[in-house]
């Protein structure tokens, strides 16, 4: 395993956007390990269509920040070969809806290599995917494909919701000897927050209670964490004490943290942008019923995108979970 990212005792605490925090985390990973490489479409000279890799090719060279031909399967497939050669490739899929040409390489090759080789061949690769909607974009640019990857044995799937997590989690994902699908909430790229280099991060696959409450637990991740925190703030004005858990890791799921929260509140609502059927909400509901059936006072509810393709952007606000839908679900949960 590559060295775990360490706290910098005399480091900085500075306010960054989530996008800049990812850039800073990638920079530190490139500095820490000469085997770390970045590859993807437009990530070099342009710095990526979202500028997440801005300036990195200039500082680390074209051999370490590689502009790829426009072929997603080729990007991931060649990264497999680079990993076999001892490198730690970090590849960018330009948008969520464009990951599918690489689906075979990710689910059949990357995910299974360690297992198929009887544990002899690690596949330390990070597949970065900007995901989710709410940015008024054209189709295929607002999707939430996490379930496909969380359903695939061999992959780990994480997503950040704050600049601080973005900075640390990208470094932790790169240090992992397992392939990690790293989902970046693109509608939150410009959200600002403090990035603290001076304290060591919590474990990559650990969930975190980001707001304490006693009435109901909202289980969310990525772009929906902020939405849930806003809903909790509004709920507080109405006398609802809403707890919010940021899952951070979608595979594996930190059921210790999740169950501990729901054991306290006895009610759980899962919130995600992805389609409802067989989404993370289904898995969380199943596990909570296995663990806490006799503790919970109402069924696990889900506030999610619908089981439709992502709609045109002028009507996407009704597709995405919002404060009203979340607070309605809170009312429903509390009324049972």
């Amino acid at each position: 395993m590559s060295a775990q990212p360490q706290a910098v005792p005399n480091g900085t605490k500075q306010t960054l956007t989530l996008g800049k925090a990812l850039n800073a985390g990638l920079r530190r990973a490139l500095e820490a390990d000469p085997k770390v490489l970045l590859a993807g479409e437009d990530i070099g000279r342009l710095g990526g269509v979202f500028r997440i890799t801005e300036g990195l090719q200039k500082d680390f060279g074209e051999d370490r920040v590689i502009d790829s031909p426009l072929a997603e399967s080729g990007i991931v497939g060649t990264a497999v070969g680079l990993a076999l050669r001892g490198y730690r490739p970090v590849v960018e899929m330009q948008f969520d809806g464009f990951v599918f040409p690489a689906f075979d390489q990710i689910t059949t090759q990357v995910a299974k290599m360690h297992f198929r080789s009887g544990g002899r061949i690690p596949m330390p690769m990070v597949i970065r995917i900007p995901y989710g909607g709410g940015i008024g974009s054209i189709e295929h640019h607002s999707e939430s494909p996490e379930t496909y990857f969380a359903h695939t044995p061999g992959l780990k799937v994480v997503t950040c919701s704050t600049p601080h997590d973005a900075y640390w989690m990208i470094q932790q994902a790169i240090a992992s000897d397992d392939p990690v699908v790293f989902l970046e909430p693109k509608r939150r790229y410009h959200e600002r927050g403090e990035v603290d280099e001076t304290t060591a991060p919590i474990a990559l696959h650990q969930a975190q209670v980001v707001r304490h409450g006693s009435d109901v637990t909202l289980l969310a991740y990525g772009p929906m964490v902020k939405t849930c925190l806003e809903a909790a703030a509004v709920g507080a004005d109405e006398g609802r004490f809403i707890e919010v858990v940021d899952l951070r890791s979608l595979s594996p799921i930190d059921m210790v943290t999740v169950s501990a929260s729901v054991r306290r509140t006895k009610r759980a609502i899962v919130v995600h942008e992805a389609h409802r059927t067989l989404g993370l909400g289904a898995e969380l509901a199943a596990r909570l019923h296995e663990d806490l059936f006799y503790v919970m006072e109402s069924p696990v509810l889900r506030v999610t995108g619908y089981d439709t393709p992502y709609p045109p952007s002028r009507i996407e606000e009704d597709y995405l979970p919002n404060l009203d839908r979340i607070l309605d679900a809170v009312d429903e949960s509390m009324s049972r």
């Binding site: 490489l37 497939g77 060649t78 497999v80 070969g81 680079l82 076999l84 490198y87 390489q105």
Partner: peptide
């Protein structure tokens, strides 16, 4: 590799690694 042709990309990436 049993998925037809998937290994050619791995080979190319490995060759890029030899260059690096």
């Amino acid at each position: 590799t049993l998925v037809i042709g998937a290994q050619t990309l791995h080979a190319t990436g490995y060759a890029m690694g030899l260059q690096l």
